[in-house]
Design a protein around this nucleic acid. Sequence first.
DNA 1: CTTAAATATCATATTAACATGAAAATAACG
DNA 2: CGTTATTTTCATGTTAATATGATATTTAAG
Lengths: 134, 134
Amino acid sequence: MLSSTAKYALRAVVYLAEHRQDEPLQVSVIADALGIPRNYLSKILHELARANVLLSARGKGGGFRIAATPEQISLLAVVEVFDQFNGNRRCLLGREECSDHSPCAAHGHWKTLSEEISTFFRETTVADLMGHVG
Amino acid sequence: MLSSTAKYALRAVVYLAEHRQDEPLQVSVIADALGIPRNYLSKILHELARANVLLSARGKGGGFRIAATPEQISLLAVVEVFDQFNGNRRCLLGREECSDHSPCAAHGHWKTLSEEISTFFRETTVADLMGHVG
DNA sequence: CTTAAATATCATATTAACATGAAAATAACG
DNA sequence: CGTTATTTTCATGTTAATATGATATTTAAG
């Protein structure tokens, strides 16, 4: 369902959300706590900062913080930085012909389901994952 | 959602289902019709035959046929040959702790959704995709 | 100004998915 | 038996995701 990069990102964001927000957390701390390769996580967190999901501070005393409250950060906001969640859900097989105006028997059911998946990621927030991901 | 290998497999099985079953169809024919790399499709069809989704016949006049009626072949039967549809849907993040007995706030909703996805692949058949995949 | 602690960046390695090409095995049929 | 059409198998190539390692840049603080 999610790439391992997106899972790393989600787990790191939840981990950040579970800590006091008045001081930033360092990549090494998060990487050690979650068992994620340090430099790889570094790049991931940097991308999340560029996407305004996190705030980064360089230099001594620096690190990462979440850029909003856990309730305000949807899973989609985190995941879409890494995984394409675009319209390729139109058809299960990714084909143009199997569109809404010429649906196969499975099309309607699949469309409903894929919309539910989208809704889940759009409406579930980081706060909903807190407490059980560390 | 599906690997491109699994999509190739599904499209090929649907294509086979749409043709007369009394004579086998050759890899080249299917590959040309669907724009799938020939030798790659060859390997895919071979694996489907080993999984008893297709029947294969070597030599002159050989090729592939579906091993049951389109109504009897679930999408799961085709897809599970290539993509792992196992219990990693338990938790969105693939973690053990986030299990049923100690759920996070998102767990119940995610579980429902992932069960719906499983049901879709288990109960939708090749017959439901016919007519719009060629 | 210097040092230490941190992120940012770049180059490279590893792995798995996807793909290609060629040779071997099989089967039908004259 | 020999030819031809086919799957099967094996060896290799390509690409993207994942990961590692080294260096540059930034900042706080003494």
